[in-house]
Computed example of a mutant assay.
Amino acid sequence: MPLVAETYFSTDLGQLIIGKTEEVLSNNIDVLKGKFDLIITSPPFPLNAKKKYGNLTGDKYKDWFTSLAPLFSDLLSPTGSLVIEIGNSWEPDRPVQSLLHLESLLGFVKNSDADLRLIQEFICYNPSRLPSPAQWVTVNRIRTVDSYTHVWWMAKSDYPKADNSKVLRPYSKSMLQLLKKQKYNAGKRPSEHNISANGFFKNHGGSIAHNLFEVEQIEHNREVRLPHNVLSFSNTSSNDVFSQKCREEGIVPHPARMSGGLISFFVDFLTNKGDLILDPFAGSNTTGYIAEMMNRRWFSIEISEDYAYQSTLRFK
């Protein structure tokens, strides 16, 4: 699509733009308005300390984050979805969790110029995350490890395009045995649910996905049952091809990469082949890479040319 922007590189399905997200999208709103079936991103988190990849702090972050809502809403198709991953933050020099991420969510969803609503919240748990906040976990040892991020699914319709039959989890061993035996204890449960005599006899190809994602296995003696389509690599993997390429070139990878498995789940869940996906804070462009593999059109924006170059390593 013809845009007023600098294309860093492109494929038959997508393009990576260098620039500041707000400026790129605002300057091309006439071309892009209503075009995206999915906006999925992991923006700079609402931290109370500056990071190398750039982030605002405190009220400035909340105001900035809230101001994005009308712009993203305009970009969505009528049945499109917006998925944002965001982490917790802590009060400066205090062992107290900040409310900044929650205030930012409320400001974003309640922005009267956006007409958005929160469809569902997901939790992405990663047992390999380094202990944080370090001062209160490993030094003073008075708090537990902050080991998960929030994933907020929003839309401007109560019924955005979605199909959970495309993101089924593998059946548990006990469920597979039940399907084989075609027999189980039906009737009323203590929860007052009344289980029908044949309600679990039909094989649907898997069970409905949960809104908790294990980026890595929680218990070694328990099989992880992520949806079939979720790519089985961790956000902290040191042995994937991308990480190897970065090491070969002496490059430090983007420190806050979104899990490819998480992205692939929402791409399958909320879009169809050929749909258009936007990542406005692309970093090393995991979103574009996953979209390309899953035959979706994609459009990514990254302000740092160094991180944009890392994106080319993914596609190599």
Rank of each mutant, 00 (worst) to 15 (best):
E121I: 09
H101N: 15
Q135S: 00
D268M: 08
T21G: 08
V4T: 12
K166A: 07
N164C: 07
K166W: 14
A197Y: 15
D268T: 09
E248P: 03
F45N: 14
F242T: 03
T57S: 14
I29H: 09
G260V: 08
L82Q: 05
T287Y: 02
F299Q: 04
I303P: 00
L68F: 12
S304C: 02
Y61M: 09
M293E: 14
P43E: 05
T312S: 00
N48L: 15
V139W: 05
G250N: 00
W152T: 06
A5N: 10
N295V: 03
S104K: 09
T236Q: 13
F65M: 06
G187C: 10
N229R: 07
I84Q: 05
S207W: 08
L3C: 10
Y53R: 01
S89W: 09
L102E: 15
F233L: 11
P131I: 05
K316P: 00
G80I: 09
K180S: 15
P44C: 06
S264I: 09
S207Q: 08
I290C: 06
V167P: 07
R314F: 00
P2V: 12
G205C: 06
S73L: 07
Q217H: 10
P95Y: 02
P255C: 03
V4P: 05
N203K: 02
N27F: 13
K33H: 03
G54V: 04
Y184K: 01
R129C: 09
E302P: 00
F265D: 06
Q310D: 01
S237I: 06
R296H: 04
T312C: 01
P43H: 06
M1S: 12
G14V: 04
Q120F: 12
F213I: 11
S259D: 14
K180G: 13
Y171I: 13
K51Q: 03
F9L: 02
F200D: 11
F266L: 05
N235W: 04
Y171Q: 11
Q97K: 07
F72H: 08
E248F: 11
A197T: 12
K166Y: 14
N272F: 15
G54R: 03
T312D: 00
E103K: 08
T11M: 04
D279K: 00
M294R: 08
S165R: 12
P92K: 07
F9E: 02
V4G: 10
S10D: 09
F200W: 13
A186I: 06
L231N: 01
M294I: 04
G206N: 04
V31R: 07
I18N: 02
T41F: 11
E292I: 00
F242S: 04
Q244D: 14
L168Y: 06
S174Q: 13
E219W: 12
E23A: 07
F242P: 03
W136M: 01
R189Q: 15
R225F: 14
I195L: 10
I290Y: 11
S98I: 13
H204P: 01
T21H: 09
K156V: 13
F315H: 02
M154P: 01
N164A: 09
K33F: 01
T41I: 10
V230W: 14
L262W: 13
D240P: 02
S165Q: 14
D240Y: 01
L47K: 10
K202G: 03
N185Q: 10
Y184P: 03
G274C: 09
I303H: 02
I40K: 08
T21N: 11
N198H: 07
F233R: 07
S243G: 06
G250S: 01
N126R: 06
R257L: 04
G87E: 13
N111H: 13
T144F: 14
